[in-house]
Write a protein that binds this DNA or RNA. Sequence first.
DNA 1: CATCGTTGTTCCAACGATGTAAAGACCGAG
DNA 2: CTCGGTCTTTACATCGTTGGAACAACGATG
Lengths: 329, 329
Amino acid sequence: MATLKDVARLAGVSVKTVSNVVNGYSFVKPDNRRRVEAALEATGYRPNLGARNLRRGRTGFIALVLPELSIPYFAELAGLVIAAAQEHEWNVLIEQTFGTLSGERLALASLGPHLVDAAILSPEALQADDFQLSVPAVLLGEHAVDVPISRVGIDNVAASMAAVRHLISLGRTRIAAIGAHPQRGTAALRLEGYRAALAEAGLDFDPSFVVPALNYHRADGAAAMKSLLDMRNPPDAVFCFNDLLAIGAMRAAAERFVRVPRDLAIVGFDNNEESVYSSPSLTSIAPDKAAIASAAVDLLHARAGSPDLVLDDVQTPFSLLVRESTVVR
Amino acid sequence: MATLKDVARLAGVSVKTVSNVVNGYSFVKPDNRRRVEAALEATGYRPNLGARNLRRGRTGFIALVLPELSIPYFAELAGLVIAAAQEHEWNVLIEQTFGTLSGERLALASLGPHLVDAAILSPEALQADDFQLSVPAVLLGEHAVDVPISRVGIDNVAASMAAVRHLISLGRTRIAAIGAHPQRGTAALRLEGYRAALAEAGLDFDPSFVVPALNYHRADGAAAMKSLLDMRNPPDAVFCFNDLLAIGAMRAAAERFVRVPRDLAIVGFDNNEESVYSSPSLTSIAPDKAAIASAAVDLLHARAGSPDLVLDDVQTPFSLLVRESTVVR
DNA sequence: CATCGTTGTTCCAACGATGTAAAGACCGAG
DNA sequence: CTCGGTCTTTACATCGTTGGAACAACGATG
């Protein structure tokens, strides 16, 4: 692999002159510039980013810490973050935590300023005192706890209210919720929206209609749905805190020959591509994932420039996409 | 951020002694070792990987070049590759090509030895002369063309035969295939397996039953299925070259009130998690993704050690998982 | 023709880590 | 008490790059 030295020797100039050409410094004699450019071409020179970043005091990487790539929401998001990061000449390093506290702590611990310039975090279990970060960071989702870090995401309460309002507008009155979680801030907010929408419509809040889910995987949704269907007086609608739970719930309903949406209307959250093609297709809250990704990256870029702690939370838009799982044909 | 120098000053020894302790060099006086370890602890020292790798002549990164993270198969695979790479102290850099030739060329071009130590490639459109790689690489999927690079993957012909044999064993005779593609080597092999299984059973090969798909997304599967259902004499079974196509096909069938599996049996390929929870659940060829990921990473690791070109192709196991989309209850 | 500012180039140090060689400490054998 | 060998530590160079200072060349100015 060619280095600056090689190019310099070939062009008959000093290393620094080559460096100047590579970095677009103005004052290089046209003649030398031509010779250097020819030598660059001839050697196929590509800068050693490690060395450059060592010298420049940056790494050229940002970390994306998320639970698991096999969760469609995070996979889609990761793809968008990678695309957004490219705009700022950043490479993305993905760390999976599998939603465990130890996994998240491990990921955070490995995030030194020598490895990444900044980090985007999607924590699920972290506590306040875990956030001893040495690089600028942005939180996706919610503040699990009160931590002085910028956040990017949608208004979970409003979005959840929109989802439940939609169910109410269909005439459903026995509306359950799947996805309560003791730790996750997001879950708390979605539950809050659920309760607010019920209250607004004068519907009673029935705690037995709120089913927890530990992992937000399809299996958890199916299990939760089964327990709801086992009730003496089962619900006629369910608001699931993400699409995977909803897909699992629909599967469980199908296994019990409960018809969706006639007997049971279902709303999800995240708008995975998968939900457009399920049978029935799934009504879902659709966050603008591209907006989330680019807002997060842009925030970090701004922060990296001026490290004075500007703490702002960015609200990204969302919409409710009504599909077959709530509309009786 | 603490450097070796800081630690050395605090412990009252030379920089190199600290380096020796950090790297587990044997001959350090217990007394010094203790002092250094205390200083390491006190400063919270973490090695600067950029500098270390600059000195060691490696980067600590491998690239994973794939079409798109929003495709579940690649998302799952990426997660497994990251996990496997951790075993060798490698970080993974994901590049998305979106399945286009220009995207793939761009990704390959950015892969200098200064950036990554090795690369795992899932190309779809690359030509033979694009493979001017400067780092060791492994191909996932198939050799699109004849290129001297190791490959990791399953026996696509055998797997496809297993899928189609299964359909034949159900008594289906009008078996279609969705996913033919002019460029992809994988598509050609799956088609070959399809034809072999038909021939083996004495069934005619009907070219009009082979439907191409450009992108292997759900939408392509749905469109292909619609065209099949529009035929005067539609198929009674379909072998889809991946699960997304199958999911799209099932959706299209449902929209036309074609019952799966009674009227139409469907087999997919990849065994996405999604396929376990669809209604009906999808029979699919299940490649051992974890085996693929770790085989690829291990191969690169071995190659990185001894760069003499040992070209071996690794066959990873697969299985056929029979689910509701092919079994009439 | 001495001086000056502008251009263009080079040399040197530094980023943080590690390999090498050589120096220093230590021990027992002669 | 010296020698030779094994431990143990250190100084120094180096990886590839860039910032800064120094230096050289140049025409323009007085």
